[in-house]
């Protein structure tokens, strides 16, 4: 795979197992070809931002990584394990990969604390006291420990998303996937969530984010990948991508989103 050398950003050890490998991944919805030969390698501790117009397949790509969607051609490897329909490998992979959704998806009938401890208790078989200690630790990290006994319906959008991040972190994943985490938030709450994500990035987590927040990309991303109509069009360091776009499609996309700012 000669392309591998190009695909790993500088500064990362190309010798250790890459965190995620996508190799010629293809997916169809009916006859619609939504992912075309998507090939990408993400190293450990690398932070990648995927951007692109709507319908470009960026959400579909990351949802294939933890098998919320299944690909029909090509291979996906997470931490060395290949993603197939085999349930045991799926369980292992899902334990290592955490996901944060655009619509938070907190469990409304459980308290915040129960939301966080549900998976550690039932998947990692942790004793309850230990799980709660872990959960409180992460709640402190996202700066809302006082909400532990409340229900999701009582929290603001920004607070709910931070809880969602803490919930994913409670499983101690190696990789975090973010699917447009701030798109459903009111503007004044976007900053508090981005702050948490920046802190997470600086602590060394491998992250793949689908987002429109270009400021966040500039500050934190090692690499920005631009997708359009199901394929990767261009990728590179954030400064280079934003200031010196090579392809016409990227130039068009940048002019459209920057006009809005």
């Amino acid at each position: 795979m000669s392309a591998t050398a190009e695909m790993i950003a500088p500064g990362h050890n190309s010798g250790e197992t890459p965190a995620i490998v996508l190799d010629k991944v293809n997916k169809w919805y009916g006859t619609m070809h939504v992912l075309r030969d998507v090939t990408m390698t993400i190293a450990q501790k690398e932070k990648v931002v995927i951007c692109g117009p709507s319908g470009s397949g960026k959400s579909t790509t990351i949802r294939c990584i933890n098998r919320l969607e299944s690909h029909q051609e090509g291979r996906i490897l997470v931490d060395g394990t290949e993603l197939t329909d085999d349930t045991r490998s799926l369980d292992t992979i899902r334990r290592e990969v955490g996901m944060v959704f655009q619509s938070f998806n907190l469990f409304p009938h459980l308290t915040i604390l129960d939301n966080l401890t549900l998976a550690p208790i039932w998947v990692r078989k942790m004793p309850k006291a230990e799980a709660e200690e872990l959960a409180m630790g992460y709640l402190k990290r996202v700066k809302i420990p006082e909400q532990a006994k409340k229900f999701p319906g009582q929290l603001s959008g920004g607070q709910q998303q931070r809880v969602a991040i803490a919930r994913a972190l409670c499983m101690k994943p190696k990789i975090m996937l973010f699917d447009e985490p701030t798109s459903a938030l009111d503007p004044e709450m976007i900053k508090e969530v981005l702050d948490v994500m920046i802190e997470l990035a600086e602590s060394g987590m491998t992250m793949v984010c689908v987002t429109h927040e270009m400021g966040f990309a500039r500050q934190v991303a090692d690499r920005v990948v631009f997708m359009d109509r199901g394929e990767i069009v261009e990728s590179g360091a954030p400064t280079r991508m934003f200031e010196d776009p090579q392809t016409d499609r990227l130039k068009l996309f940048l002019s459209q989103i920057l006009r809005g700012h």
Binding site: G30, M32, R36, I232, E234, Q246
Partner: peptide
């Protein structure tokens, strides 16, 4: 890490609107 061959981007992958028979049909 030059991408000179990709000055105008990588060659667009042609759309295969006929998914393989194992996928659709």
């Amino acid at each position: 890490m030059s991408q000179s061959a990709a000055a105008s981007g990588p060659v667009p992958v042609p759309s295969r609107d006929q998914p393989p028979a194992s996928v659709y049909g």
